[in-house]
Design a protein around this nucleic acid. Structure first.
Length: 494
RNA sequence: GAGCCGCUAGCUCAGAUGGUAGAGCAACGCCCUUUUAAGGCGUGGGCCCCGGGUUCGAAUCCCGGGCGGCUCACCA
């Protein structure tokens, strides 16, 4: 190879060498019998002699992660789904032909190995190959063994590489699926039924957010990707699914950040004949039972802070939180003018037409929300910002709702559902007014949903939990992109 | 959307004040049959993110653009 040859060309050359000696570089007839972990587990506690006596053998496959080459012998590490294990290749043992194949293997190739398990001088458990098969030739080199792949853009764009090279990344995603499975187990055990409701909605409802718009050609109608499943799940409660949930994607056409991805996974569940207070207890049970299994403790580390999940969690109303964490006066809650003045005083820009409740919420978010590092149920939100929640019996300006805050972030949002169809209709009407006043995220009127309520919905409590954020918390991940396999990025342009 | 930072070999990174691009790992060749980032000797490898400008000369300075990260805004 005297002329300029890149890594890929070199590997294609090797591939040709193999083909010409009758070796298929992409065969499909190797039967794997063991995994790296099985081999390791079965030899735990066995010293060199005991292992020798046992005569353990293994047939396994994996990707070559590293070579330590000695000419006529070589050590390599191969990696399968369970981890890494060392392989020893000796020319004497595998023979001339197999050794020739091996010499045309590179880091990154996928191989199959059969051999005896032994311990080396340094006591590392090793499979001594008596046969080697190339199962898939890699044409591109893997990132460097020592520093690995750290460039975040490459890690997100080529997640497969990230997963091959950074084991802790794979761990996070395995934990993610475990968390979701535990949630399903938790709800299924309590007689909840899992359902799927439309992603395409002609009236995007159930949350305050801007939707993605698309078009159905055959029907010739505009459709919206859902921003929440809420209104469909409540229709199911009306239909008799007294305990129902969905774990699925929501889509919101908004900014991207360490906390936001345009598509994200949401758990929503509804429990008939329950109140938002019942859901606080249920939420504590659900999240602590998951933390126990995933983290093994209630005192978890998140980005340098220790979060104590030991129940019961603090409960505080929006009003009390504002009074506690700011020098606001009591009458901001009864007098909109006072609320406006106070908001301005603490530097909040208020667009025209903000409702009293929205101003209160702004004040809460500015003064109190970031203070709730330890898990806290913040309760009783203003009615204007909660158009689907049940009005509080004693104070009609607030609703029976809570948000669960951890590290100053919303993990869950829940309320006693509004099941009075006339009240619901009025709330929608109020939202329309706010939309007309310029609020792009105000809810839309959904007549069909109101009609469903007119058939009667049992008193019900409902909750949404942002799965991505829960996973971030339980895996100590700083960015939502670290818990979503393929986070949204701009396409690369040349 | 705004501000700050980054983009140089497959990967991780150096390249003051402008002088024509380097290291380690990976790769290739030779030696080496128990290594652990194996070792020794040798070799090749670059649209320095893109486009303009200044200059005798730009990876470096200036302007514009692209992509990414973080912070803020918006939100969950």
């Amino acid at each position: 190879m005297t002329e300029k040859v890149g890594d890929v060309e070199q590997r294609i050359n090797k591939l040709e060498v193999l083909r010409q000696s009758g070796i298929n570089p992409y065969p499909n007839d190797f039967t794997v019998k063991n995994t790296a972990k099985e081999v390791t587990d079965s030899c735990i506690g066995l010293d060199k002699e005991a292992l020798e006596a046992k005569g353990e053998t293994a047939i396994l496959a994996g990707r070559i992660m590293a070579f330590r080459d000695f000419g006529k012998a070589s050590f390599l590490h191969i990696q399968d789904r369970t981890g890494k294990i060392q392989v020893y290749i000796k020319k004497d043992l595998i023979g001339e032909n197999a050794f020739k194949i091996f010499k045309n293997c590179d880091v990154g190739d996928i191989i199959g190995i059969e051999g005896r398990v032994f311990r080396t001088k340094t006591n590392e458990l090793t499979v001594e190959a008596k046969d080697i098969r190339l199962l898939a030739k890699a044409l591109l080199p893997l990132p460097e063994k020592w520093h690995g792949l750290t460039d975040v853009e490459t890690r997100y764009r080529r997640r497969y590489l990230d997963l091959i090279v950074n084991p802790e990344v794979k761990d996070v995603f395995i934990k993610r699926t475990q968390i979701i499975r535990l949630i399903r187990d938790f709800l299924n055990m309590r007689d909840f039924v899992e359902v799927e409701t439309p992603m395409f909605q002609s009236i995007p409802g159930g949350a305050a957010a801007r939707p993605f718009k698309t078009h159905h050609n055959a029907l010739d109608i505009d459709l919206f990707l859902r921003i929440a499943p809420e209104l469909y799940l409540k229709r199911l409660v009306i239909g008799g699914f007294e305990r129902v949930y969905e774990i699925n994607r929501n889509f919101r056409n908004e900014g991207i950040s360490t906390q936001h991805n345009p598509e994200f996974t949401m758990l929503e569940f509804y429990l008939a004949y329950a109140t938002f207070e019942d859901l606080m207890t249920l939420t504590e049970e659900m999240i602590t039972s998951i933390a126990r299994k995933i983290c093994g403790t209630f005192k978890i580390e998140y980005q340098g802070q220790t979060i104590d999940l030991t129940p019961p969690w603090q409960r505080i109303s929006v009003k009390d939180a504002i009074l506690k964490y700011s020098n606001a006066d009591n009458d901001i809650f009864t007098d909109k003018k006072m609320a406006v003045d106070f908001a301005k005083k603490i530097g909040i820009d208020l667009p025209e037409g903000f409702s009293h409740g929205k101003i209160i919420l702004e004040i809460f978010e500015r003064t109190a929300e970031p203070k709730f590092i330890q898990p806290t149920f913040v309760t009783h939100y203003p009615i204007e910002v909660s158009p689907l929640s049940r009005k509080n019996e004693k104070d009609p300006t607030i609703v029976d709702r809570f948000e669960l805050l951890v590290c100053g972030r919303e993990i869950a949002n829940a309320f006693s559902e509004l099941n009075d169809p006339i009240d619901q209709k009025q709330r929608f009407v109020q939202q329309i007014k706010e939309k007309e006043a310029g609020d792009t995220e105000a809810h839309l009127m959904d007549e069909d949903f109101v009609m469903a309520l007119e058939y009667g919905m049992p008193p019900t409590a409902g909750e949404g939990i942002g799965i991505d954020r829960l996973v971030m918390l339980l895996t100590n991940s700083a960015s939502i992109r670290d818990v979503i396999l393929f986070p949204q990025l701009r396409p690369e342009r040349i």
